[in-house]
Computed example of a mutant assay.
Amino acid sequence: MALCSRFTPRDGAGEAFDELVREAAAAVLEREPGTLVYACSEVEERRTSDSSSSCTPTA
C-alpha cells in the first residue's frame, strides 16, 4: 500500500511545518515498525524563503 500527500503550508508557516513533518517521521519509525519507506520531498519552485528541508528520508 502507498499513500501520497501534498501539503501547501501558509506563508510564514514553513518552519513549523518542517518541525511537524520531523515529528511525524519519528512517530512512524517508533509506532509503525513494518513501514519500509517514509520519504519526504519538496517542490523547489513552490518553496518559500522560510522553509527548510522537510525531513530526512528514513526506512
Rank of each mutant, 00 (worst) to 15 (best):
A2K: 09
L3D: 05
C4G: 14
C4M: 14
S5E: 07
R6K: 13
F7L: 14
F7W: 12
F7G: 09
F7E: 11
F7M: 13
F7D: 10
F7T: 13
T8S: 15
T8A: 13
P9Q: 06
P9S: 07
P9T: 05
G12P: 04
A13K: 06
A13H: 09
G14D: 00
G14V: 01
A16C: 11
E19T: 06
E19C: 03
E19W: 08
E19S: 07
E19V: 09
V21K: 12
R22E: 10
R22N: 12
A24M: 12
A24D: 05
A25G: 12
A25N: 06
A26I: 01
A27I: 04
A27T: 13
A27Q: 13
V28R: 14
L29W: 06
L29P: 12
R31A: 08
R31Y: 02
E32I: 12
E32Q: 15
E32F: 14
P33A: 03
P33C: 01
P33L: 01
P33K: 00
G34M: 09
T35A: 14
T35G: 09
T35D: 07
L36P: 02
L36I: 05
L36D: 13
L36H: 10
Y38N: 05
A39N: 11
A39T: 04
C40F: 06
C40T: 04
C40E: 03
C40H: 05
S41I: 08
S41T: 14
S41F: 12
S41R: 08
V43L: 14
V43P: 12
E45S: 07
E45G: 01
E45M: 03
E45D: 09
R46H: 13
R46Y: 13
R46C: 08
R46L: 10
R47G: 01
R47Y: 00
R47M: 02
T48Q: 00
S49E: 01
S49F: 00
D50Q: 02
D50C: 02
S51K: 00
S51M: 04
S51Y: 04
S51A: 06
S52F: 03
S53Q: 13
S53F: 07
S54I: 14
C55Q: 00
C55V: 03
C55M: 05
C55G: 02
C55P: 01
P57S: 08
P57C: 08
P57W: 11
T58L: 11
T58Y: 04
A59N: 04
